[in-house]
Design a protein around this nucleic acid. Sequence first.
DNA 1: TACAATATGTCTCTATTCGGACATATCAAG
DNA 2: CTTGATATGTCCGAATAGAGACATATTGTA
Lengths: 109, 109
Amino acid sequence: MTETFKERIVLRFSKNFLDILALRLIQAEPMWGYKIIKKTEILFGIKLRHGAIYPLLNSLEANGFLRSRQEVHGRRKRKVYEITSRGIQFVSAYYDFLREQLQMLDIKG
Amino acid sequence: MTETFKERIVLRFSKNFLDILALRLIQAEPMWGYKIIKKTEILFGIKLRHGAIYPLLNSLEANGFLRSRQEVHGRRKRKVYEITSRGIQFVSAYYDFLREQLQMLDIKG
DNA sequence: TACAATATGTCTCTATTCGGACATATCAAG
DNA sequence: CTTGATATGTCCGAATAGAGACATATTGTA
């Protein structure tokens, strides 16, 4: 029962904060869309739609949160993203928010 | 700049986790809809629509996260909500999630 | 007495999101 | 030689969410 609640929250997070999820993974290690999908499935048990992640990554790059380079393996190419300082600032703001939320375990009055 | 990021995240949270925001406030102290709106404005600088909060509170009660009683002051009445054990479990799951997120500051591999 | 605040509710039109299909290419394994 | 995995992209109809109006009642203040 409580486990279901947790799952619900994780699911909501991955929907509403998908950009932060992607940025965090890329911050830990430069990554490409396909790997993000696989990693999220392993780490959180959530299957992201590729139809959601690829446009997201492009918009995150357009907004200066990520930068990409083509990585070529033989004839195959992947678009490897790394986080920018702007992206790091955004993720930091998210962590600051989490810390504040936890500190506010006792709102009174 | 970083401040704007923080504001963005707070705003997104209040939209996507409005139920948890309400549950947390009610858990701290039994409360009614109107007070939640005022409190959120003071605490977070966010103006909630009453057209959003009242249906939400009713559905949270219908789902067993809250229970309400009529409080009458003269001829005026307010619907005071208190959190149920189920509601507490849900909020706990949220906090567990926050803690896990912070612990996962370094995802590797 | 009129306006602002307290207090709770519904409803509709619009805006956004989302699932899933369509599209294409390489490569490994059976 | 075909199926499944890797890899990235677009697009549209359906479903959901959101802003703001409509509705009503009490009370305090200017």
